[in-house]
């Protein structure tokens, strides 16, 4: 995989473990996520792929009694460092959730939410940032005339693109997507996939999905998780056509999971 090795990885995990209380959820993880590429996490439910995603922006902190050990670095900085400013970290790591979660505000206010809480007040700056983000999220043409209407007036697919616009408005280094299409109809899913492909060059994207075809369509790299372990990671085409491990093959062919 020559083209992957030339990229300096953005996220590096080594000997990484994660526990819910005493229960281990991730075991001895070693993974590089390359810069500017789309990486897909696949695997059966409860295999730890979402958990790992949430480790990247420390969202697991919200759950009592969780613990991380080992090394997980973002751009060289240790995420697991207790000294790290979680707020700063979350600004660098955008996240899109499974269920679209627009705020009870106008479309404009939704997009600039992250900027506002970071202390940006300049109206022109916010307006420009809003337009930029909505254009990148391929939503601008649909909402440009009603930026100040409630975000709840949009459809489900538009909601999710709005959430993507909101995530990229703060200019993160990496965007995490946790099954972003699982609550959407096929047409909206298509649009989101197109959008991911467009964003691929500009952002590092990590996407968790249960949809194998989706992983194949949008990702450059695929990692297969099984029972808290990273079983196999490789270039998507290779992994899908010639998996090295038996578990991967079984999962891909639908023999379990």
């Amino acid at each position: 995989m020559p083209n992957l090795e030339t990229c300096a990885p953005l996220v590096v995990a080594r000997d990484f473990n994660f526990f819910y209380g005493a229960k281990p959820a991730l075991h001895q993880l070693a993974l590089d996520i390359p810069r500017g590429k789309v990486t897909a996490f696949i695997g059966p439910s409860g295999c730890g792929k979402s958990t790992f995603l949430r480790c990247l922006n420390r969202m697991n902190d919200l759950i009592d009694g969780t613990k991380m050990t080992g090394s997980l670095r973002l751009d060289g900085k240790e995420i697991n460092d207790p000294e790290i400013d979680v707020i700063d970290l979350r600004r660098q790591v955008g996240m899109v959730f499974q269920k679209p979660n627009p705020f009870p505000k106008s479309i404009f206010e939704n997009v600039v939410y992250g900027l506002r809480i970071a202390g940006h007040r300049n109206r022109t700056f916010l307006t420009d940032a809003c337009e930029q983000s909505l254009k990148r999220a391929a939503l601008w043409d649909e909402v440009k005339d009603r930026l100040h209407d409630s975000a709840f007036g949009l459809s489900g697919g538009q909601h999710q693109r709005l959430c993507i616009a909101r995530a990229i408005a703060v200019a993160p280094e990496i965007v995490l997507m946790d099954e972003p299409c699982s609550a959407l109809d096929p047409r909206s899913t298509n649009k989101i996939e197109d959008l991911i492909n467009e964003l691929a060059g500009q952002y590092t994207i990590v996407i968790v999905t249960h949809n194998m075809q989706q992983a194949a369509r949008v990702s450059d790299l695929t990692a297969f998780f099984y029972e808290g372990k990273l079983v196999e990671v490789g270039e998507t085409e290779t992994l899908f056509t010639a998996p090295r491990c038996k578990e991967t093959e079984d999962y891909l062919t639908g023999r379990f999971g």
Binding site: M59, I87, R90, R91, P104, Y113, G114, I117, R166, V170
Partner: peptide, 20 residues
Amino acid sequence: EIRQGSLALGATRWQTLWRA
């Protein structure tokens, strides 16, 4: 999801409470 969405954008708990 609303709380998590806000926190994931780098909001503090207070900002999340107050704004969302």
